[in-house]
Amino acid sequence: MARHPATPAAAPKVRVVTLKIDGHDIGAREDETILNAANDNGIRIPTLCYLEGLSEWGACRMCVVEVAGSPKLMTACSTRVAEGMEVTTNSDRLQRYRRTILELLFAERNHICSVCVSNGHCELQSLARACGMDHVRVPYRNAAYAVDSSHDLFRIDQNRCILCTRCVRVCDEIEGAHTWDVMGRGVDSQVITDLNQPWGQSTSCTGCSKCVQVCPTGALVKKGTAAGEMEKQGGFLPYLTEMRGNR
């Protein structure tokens, strides 16, 4: 019997809901996140661990928003829209919290931008500027983390890592290698290759460089780059996922 391959089997009907974001009336598909709905309507919510084309993680908390009626802050990247929702994305309180998150990230490991290969091309650095984070109030931890240069082409400097797990997700979800994962707890957490073996000895790494390109900071870099020379090309991701039919 002939089938119609072009017709997807009983596509579920997606309802459209209406909500308010920063006072604007907005229509969005009910399966959309607040972040997507805001983006589609030109409202920018700061993000760090979120990356279009990868699964939602909700770890960095930069995208927290206020939802009327809820005492809790919600992460816009992982909260679905709902009918009648009233969202505030940029109150004084949210701006203060975002600055504090950035301060804690800068204080946790080493972010001396002036000597960093990613200086001038770093998402953490530009967010600090965009959010007006102009100094860190908490004490710097001054803890030293490892640098692994064992890979032929790339280097991981844990001192610049903010544990966004973009590398873990891109390697697993897009490249299918799952070389990266996270080990340890709290401030001792770090991303590892294989079973915490040197990256250069990894048998699963294909050397594709996707992790390097999506890393928002100077943690994952190409070898041979000097201060300010590491520019990343993360734009391939939404294209790749779309071409694969969002699978």
Binding site: F106, I112, C113, S114, V115, H135, Y140, A143, A144
Partner: peptide, 18 residues
Amino acid sequence: ISLGDCAVSGNVPSMRNT
């Protein structure tokens, strides 16, 4: 006024801190 990264964040002089 704190002028410059060393004054604001410790910057290069603070690389000895570890």
